Amino acid sequence: MLDEVDRWLERRSWSAVDRPLPRLLAAKRAAGPAGRVSVVLPALNEEATVGDIVAAIRRELMTEETPLVDELVVMDSGSTDRTSAVAAAAGARVVHRDDVLPRLPALPGKGEVLWRSLMVTSGEIVCFVDADLRDFDPAFVSGIVGPLLTEPDLALVKAMYDRAIGNAPVGGGRVTELVARPLINLYWPQLAGFVQPLGGEYAARRSLLERLSFPVGYGVELGLLVDALRTVGLDALGQVDVGVRKHRNQDGPALGRMAAAIYRTAHARLARGPLIRPELTQFERGPDGSFVPRTHPVDTEERPPMRTVPEYAARRHAA
């Protein structure tokens, strides 16, 4: 590991307990408009978990006594279940992906809704939290928002945690360990200190997010992290330990598709030229017992920096 990363780990890695809520509330008051916090939950068919997450944030971080979060938005990515109804009943403002920037046909993928969320939120600090978390702890929000309120030179903070799989407290994050971490160590060694580089829980200043392009699919976390390093430098990035993350684990073929998106995102940033064939073929047994190929497209689209979108520029100017 680079000496620079060793020093960064000492300076820019914390635990959520390092910043008690009263300290964060005082820092938020002192920051004024710059301390306004928006929380965004990207959701696709998460009716089983999204309500509990919304309820916990409202109960612990959006009361008169603890007004840390100003805005809580669930971005529905085209759910066919009761995700929107459950989220709204729990107290979130629900925004449907297709209702944002309607002149641009929506593309499938998590990164697409994160990008569009910048159009419908107002906080100068934007916090993203996956909507499939179980046993949700509000420290996933307060922990990663905290350093941005108390350290003015920080621009992006990621959560770090143990990743449970099944009944085991660790062992999740298979795409991280098998794909993302080797790529990061080989090509972006300054980022080697991030415990969960692909984690979906992170907070950033709007002033940074609006300057970055967003891969529309699963590669969004790697893309944003690499581009943030290039844009603001390692010392403007941090991470916070929030404990254990429990969520719905994916099966092998789904992980393969995620891995392909990670490779594509890395490839684009390494400037090695266009991909010859942006797709992934996997195999499964058919009814007759033979292996059947299934080919899936790999996301190749990226949304441009939001500040280049006319509607966003007009909205910010009006604000």
Rank of each mutant, 00 (worst) to 15 (best):
Ala87Trp: 15
Ala87Met: 08
Ala87Lys: 11
Ala87Gly: 14
Ala87Asp: 14
Ala87Thr: 12
Ala88Phe: 11
Ala88Ile: 12
Ala89Pro: 09
Ala89Glu: 11
Ala89Tyr: 08
Ala89Leu: 10
Ala89Thr: 15
Ala90Lys: 07
Ala90Ser: 13
Ala90His: 07
Gly91Ala: 06
Gly91Met: 07
Gly91Asn: 05
Gly91Asp: 05
Gly91Thr: 11
Ala92Ser: 02
Ala92Phe: 06
Ala92Ile: 01
Ala92Lys: 05
Ala92Cys: 00
Ala92Val: 05
Arg93Phe: 01
Arg93Thr: 02
Arg93Val: 01
Arg93Ala: 01
Arg93Asn: 03
Arg93His: 03
Val94Glu: 04
Val94Cys: 07
Val94Thr: 02
Val94Gln: 04
Val95Cys: 04
His96Tyr: 03
His96Glu: 07
His96Arg: 11
Arg97Leu: 04
Asp98His: 15
Asp98Asn: 13
Asp98Gly: 11
Asp98Ala: 10
Asp99Met: 12
Asp99Thr: 13
Val100Glu: 08
Val100Gly: 11
Leu101Ala: 09
Leu101Tyr: 10
Pro102Val: 07
Pro102His: 14
Arg103Ser: 15
Arg103Asp: 14
Arg103Cys: 14
Leu104Phe: 15
Pro105Met: 12
Pro105His: 14
Pro105Trp: 15
Ala106Tyr: 09
Ala106Met: 11
Leu107Cys: 11
Leu107His: 06
Leu107Ser: 09
Pro108Phe: 01
Pro108His: 06
Pro108Asn: 04
Pro108Tyr: 07
Pro108Ala: 05
Gly109Cys: 04
Gly109Val: 01
Gly109Lys: 02
Gly109Gln: 01
Gly109Phe: 01
Gly109Glu: 01
Gly109His: 06
Lys110Phe: 06
Gly111Val: 02
Glu112Ala: 08
Glu112Pro: 03
Glu112Ile: 03
Glu112Met: 06
Val113Met: 05
Val113Cys: 04
Val113Phe: 00
Val113Leu: 03
Leu114Asn: 00
Leu114His: 04
Trp115Pro: 08
Trp115Gly: 01
Trp115Ser: 02
Trp115His: 09
Trp115Tyr: 09
Trp115Glu: 00
Arg116Gly: 06
Arg116Glu: 04
Arg116Asn: 02
Ser117Ala: 07
Ser117Gln: 04
Leu118Lys: 02
Leu118Asp: 03
Leu118Pro: 06
Leu118Glu: 05
Met119Pro: 08
Val120Ala: 10
Val120Ser: 14
Thr121Phe: 08
Thr121Ser: 11
Thr121His: 09
Thr121Met: 07
Thr121Glu: 08
Thr121Tyr: 06
Gly123His: 08
Gly123Phe: 03
Gly123Asn: 08
Gly123Tyr: 09
Gly123Arg: 08
Gly123Gln: 08
Glu124Phe: 13
Glu124Gly: 13
Glu124Met: 12
Glu124His: 11
Ile125His: 10
Ile125Ser: 12
Ile125Gly: 11
Val126Leu: 02
Val126Thr: 04
Val126Arg: 00
